[in-house]
Design a binder for these strands. Structure first.
Lengths: 340, 340
DNA sequence: GATGTATATGGAACCGGTTGCACACATTGG
DNA sequence: CCAATGTGTGCAACCGGTTCCATATACATC
């Protein structure tokens, strides 16, 4: 027998409304009736159907979380941050993975309709290579959205980012001022990724600041993956003799470069510096330990969730979207040539 | 103006039922009417409310996915496998993280009620240290459940596991037969983890098979974390001179041991072998590259989702829960002493 | 022309809750 | 003693869809 609040009402000899009130502690219910109802609910192990509740209350208590399949080390951190904040307030997280399985267009269509059909109370989206059509569709959503890794403020969408520029700047500063490197190569990520763009921007800025030229032939374009880095290595290899250091736009690519260099008998950090960006979990344990820039992904998740909650409880915030930029931090290990 | 199918019906000059039919392609609707309705839907950008649909159809098209916050490297793999299968069939994933934030009891209560209140069509649970009360509550759920990392078949719950025992056996075999190691220490994970228990069991079995004794003083108990491994290292250190190899029940602990050994000036794989279990993403890139046992976590996620879908479409499968055991594979790298 | 069948549509009940309103009763104060 | 107020409860509408059933029309068949 399917249990509904009507069934419970019948068993308790009261009306649906009274059961509902007893359940929610709203309105008037006498102590005696309440005890009786709760007793029956306990006895029959009744659990109210949340979607019926949502239908009445016009709230789903669900936040969508969209992540790329390739966010590798960040998955856990971001999810943990988000969940930690939402759980406390009784919200759940509906997950969508971009580019798992189907084509990326399908995946984007899927997550947009997830947000809309499921009437999400809010959504946190991490989709570095998002296209403008999807942005437009998101901008039309009435649910509060927080976008990670890209500034979509001008489309009316809150954004949370890490300070890539100053991260890159401090890295270059370290490479130049501490080690005296002058010829620094750069390995970019995907063209459309703001993270990649900004990291490169910071790199250029800092090089300029130190009066160094950025040789175009020393800038390589890859895709943030280990295998992608291996692929561009042959090109990099040709210039190895005139390079002091390789600055990779993320750790995974740095790992690929390091691995390829070792195959050539070169020891990164000794023969040539190789540094990354991200501070992945494993960065300190590889050989050599990777000098990189730390991104507070757990905090990103937490702050994103907090912002969503804030906007849910105060819908007028809709009007002025904000952008929050979190600080990054240079982590010096050995792959830059430092002894510690 | 909030759009509902009634609004659309009014605009199209037809009844709700006709709109519903046009939307779902069910029943009879004339081509002309259908076009008109769909045109209006497109024009007003109407999206049906999935929870209302769920309420009628008695299906949520949602599967719960429960993961521990500490599943580190597996997060991504399992989630990807699950999502990939579910997405194709139009299902979404509702996520809960065990032990993020609140106490573990609270987190368990939370995910059980998530499954019940939200009327999940199914659930995939990865909670290695689950307690018997929670198991009992899960067993009472009417939704199909697939449990990962622990055999709960006797409670009527489908289980998917990896073959820890044969994984350990092949590792020991390698250490003994290939390298001639005889005195092998073992670092366990949490007492209650089946993975840890079985890996140890396989270890004992194989040692016995090779006519080797397992010295009790060479078995250490940790918790699957890097820091946990560091903590038991001082004990391990005392016996270092009479040990050929250290077999850690997972990669993270192996990494901790490796790191501590290096601090002592010992080079793992050269002075003493250190091996792990999991084949985490970073395992091949650390120094020395870690010899370990690969677990197919992506497949675990995929198969779990497939099984859920199967059970949803064929509820009679409820009767006989199954246990699927996926093969593991020895991955030989350098930390065992091999040159490659 | 009567009957049968396929097609097209609307009405109303239903899914499982919440909530505004009406009503009944008890208590209190003037 | 009556009005005002505070409690306790039920009815019915509503949230936004689906679906069964009844009705209506068109067309073919005998």
């Amino acid at each position: 027998m399917k249990l509904t609040i009507s069934q419970i009402a019948k068993l308790a000899g009261v009306s649906k409304s009274t059961v509902s009130r007893a359940l929610n502690g709203s309105g008037y219910v006498s102590e005696k009736t309440k005890r009786k109802i709760l007793e029956i609910i306990r006895k029959y192990d009744f659990v109210p159907d949340s979607k019926a509740v949502s239908l009445s209350k016009r709230r789903t208590f669900t936040v969508g979380l969209i992540l790329p399949a390739t966010s590798g080390p960040f998955y856990g951190e971001v999810i943990r941050g988000v969940e930690e904040v939402l759980a406390v307030k009784g919200y759940f997280t509906l997950l969508a993975i971009v580019d798992s399985g189907q084509s990326i267009e399908q995946a984007r269509a899927r997550y947009v309709s997830m947000i809309r059909e499921r009437r999400m109370d809010g959504a946190i989206i991490f989709d570095p290579t998002i296209d403008s059509k999807t942005v437009e569709r998101l901008a039309r959503c009435k649910a509060p959205i927080v976008f990670l890794s890209k500034n979509l403020q001008k489309f009316g969408i809150d954004s949370i980012k890490v300070d890539n520029i100053s991260g890159s700047v401090s890295m270059v500063k370290h490479l130049v001022e501490k080690h005296g490197y002058r010829r620094i190569a750069f390995v970019k990520g995907p063209e459309v990724s703001d993270d990649s763009i900004e990291r490169f921007e910071g790199f250029l800025e800092a090089m300029h600041e130190h009066g160094l030229e950025c040789d175009e032939s020393l800038v390589f374009c890859s895709d943030f993956t280990l295998e992608g880095a291996r692929k561009i290595f042959p090109q990099l290899k040709k210039h190895l003799n005139k390079i002091d250091a390789v600055f990779c736009a993320n750790d995974e690519m740095a790992l690929g470069i390091i691995d390829e260099m070792k195959k050539l008998g070169l020891y990164p950090g000794k023969d040539i510096a190789v540094v990354g960006f991200d501070d992945a979990f494993w960065a300190r344990y590889i050989d050599p330990p990777l000098t990189t820039v730390h991104q507070p992904m757990y905090e990103v998740g937490k702050i994103a969730a907090q912002r969503i909650l804030e906007r849910i409880s105060n819908p007028t915030l809709f009007k002025d979207p904000i952008t929050i930029i979190l600080q990054t931090k240079l982590i010096v290990r050995r792959s830059c040539g430092c002894s510690q």
